[in-house]
Design a protein around this nucleic acid. Structure first.
Lengths: 341, 341
DNA sequence: TTGAAAGCGTTACCAG
DNA sequence: CTGGTAACGCTTTCAA
């Protein structure tokens, strides 16, 4: 059974290939085919024949000829991360509505992987790329930009990178909101644990934390502990032990993995939240509602984030200048900050 | 800056396009280029020129001409599901090693989405598809099979579907192991909650449960409660309330989402595990270690599952007959089954 | 409203 | 080992 081509349809319908091409590309608007300068009757016949023959368009050919593929690539730093799993779906939905197919590839938090992924997707002629950059990924991004493939940065900014769209969370506000909440409860000794990842989102969340402390005249109490992805479990344990000894009252945890690690350590040490330590976590997870005390956390507007990404990217594909969009976080209250002082 | 083609490289290197094509497709084996019947010197020069000019292959053209795309599609039923997030990465790793790029699309647990996803990926000339089928997705799968695109079923079997590869968990063993474990602790009133999804994996886990009960001469106590994805929270609550009244001692939960729902209900009702109800959950999650009592659960061998999928699929692409592979689950012990009776 | 014909960048085939 | 040349299936002028 050989593949049905546009030619077979044309022959069978008694028209030229041009007509078939027109019909197949026509967008249905309201009810009839608008886009296409084809007699309605003819169009209908072509459509019927195509259907009967089981015609399916060969994208490779279309892409080769037109230079467009109607495909966009999404490169999250880690596809098994809950935040990206959620946003991927939003992106997919939004992209489909605009007639784009989505390609996923993971950079697994490494510049090398990101580079390989970008090579792969540009070779496949994607029309645009949505990427959550990793530390040291500037060069890889540069390749895409040089190749004139529109790029939108998601979640993490790369300072000074020109010509790319950006869809980010107002990370400073997230840090500020979290800290304000804790300080508003009358606490004064609030600290933070973060990663040494060199990523804009983390440093801005830290800025928010610091500014809030400053605004409350508590900057002398401000303290940020750093760890790395691999050593978090051990580091966090000693940080918490020490903090409790020093009378620290609360921690702001600017990522999901840090939040999970802290909860795990609290459990291991037999500490309770908020009595021993109040907590504000980040991103969504089942654990926030299932932990012995529910956990207050900051959530990102996944749907909006995903929609905006696609919107900005498609805009760029159509020749608009890159946009920068900043969205606002929301706080979900839980028991871990229920304090009466 | 126009795109560099194979022709530009050929001209610049003073050779024919054929030679360039050979060199670009040659696979490095050990150290030199084996595959390719080209003078080593010439090959080196071509490679250098290609590099200098910044040549990147146009996959659309290659795919059009050769009918192959070196691309495989993965269609999980839900990409934001932890099991699939994990396995996606394994698949990607394994596929890259064999020179394939991976495409993701989500069917979101709906036959319609699956159908659309299959249309999209076959139109993009993927060489093969790995799919976790949804209920009612047989027709959509049929389309791929008719189009002669190799298909591997992951996680869920579709009975009677011919000509597809299968990589599955020994679900009956999973059900049996869980139940054996509980009965081995001296419990006799063990029940199960499942979905009415009509999916092979669930019904086999149920079979395992039933057989175990039977083997222990406790079949009169066997009871399976059914709910649906959307109504789970409410249903589970009344199931548990009733069960506790009836003196049920344990539940086997054959999916992650049911496990999470049960934990949430236990928390809400102020019940404790294993004192009030022993629990065996499914798949991996942070919540199993963070819940007030750690939870015993069944895990699937993600790495093996992913590797086998790719292996079977690539085999089929190369013309081998479809294989069926069944892998074994493992049980991770937690506090939720620590019973002394 | 329709059709003929010219490529898009590769690979495959056949000769040297 | 090397090189010409014809496809692959489609979109896109251009002309009718």
């Amino acid at each position: 059974m050989k593949r049905i081509t546009i030619r077979d349809v044309a022959r069978e319908a008694g028209v030229s290939v041009t007509l078939v091409s027109f019909v197949m590309n026509a967008k249905r608007d309201k009810d009839g085919k608008l886009d296409c300068p084809v007699n309605a009757e003819t169009a209908k016949r072509v459509l019927r024949v195509a259907q009967e023959l089981g015609y399916r368009r060969n994208f490779a050919a279309a892409s080769l000829r037109s230079g467009k593929s109607n495909t966009i690539a999404v490169i999250p730093n880690d596809i098994s991360n809950k935040f990206f799993a959620g946003i991927s779906r939003q992106i997919e939905d939004a992209a489909h509505k605009l007639g784009y197919t989505v390609f996923f590839a993971s950079s697994e938090e490494s510049a090398e992987h990101l580079s390989a992924a970008i090579d792969a997707v540009t070779a496949h002629n994607v029309d645009g790329i949505i990427v959550a950059p990793v530390t040291g990924g500037e060069e890889a991004l540069g390749k895409a930009i040089d190749a004139k493939v529109p790029v939108v940065l998601l979640d993490r900014d790369v300072e000074g990178l020109q010509g790319v769209g950006k869809v980010l969370l107002d990370d400073e506000a997230a840090g500020r909101m979290s800290t304000d909440l804790l300080l508003g409860k009358g606490l004064t000794k609030v600290e933070m644990i973060s990663y040494t990842l060199g990523i804009s989102s983390l440093s801005e969340r830290e800025t928010g934390y610091r500014k809030s402390m400053m605004d409350h005249d508590l900057y002398q109490n401000a303290r940020v502990h750093y760890t790395t992805y691999g050593k978090a479990e051990a580091d966090v344990e000693s940080i918490i032990r020490d903090a409790v000894d020093r009378g620290v009252e609360a921690f702001f945890l600017p990522t999901y993995s840090l939040s999970a690690t802290v909860l795990s350590v609290l459990k291991k040490l037999g500490l309770r939240t908020p009595d021993d330590l109040a907590i504000v976590g980040f991103d969504e997870s089942d654990i926030y509602s299932l932990y012995s005390t529910t956990v207050t956390h900051i959530v990102q507007p996944l749907k909006e984030l995903g929609e905006k990404c696609v919107e900005v990217l498609v805009g760029m594909i159509q020749g608009n200048p890159p946009e920068k969009i900043v969205l606002h976080p929301e706080v979900i209250l839980g028991g871990s900050t229920e304090i009466n002082k």
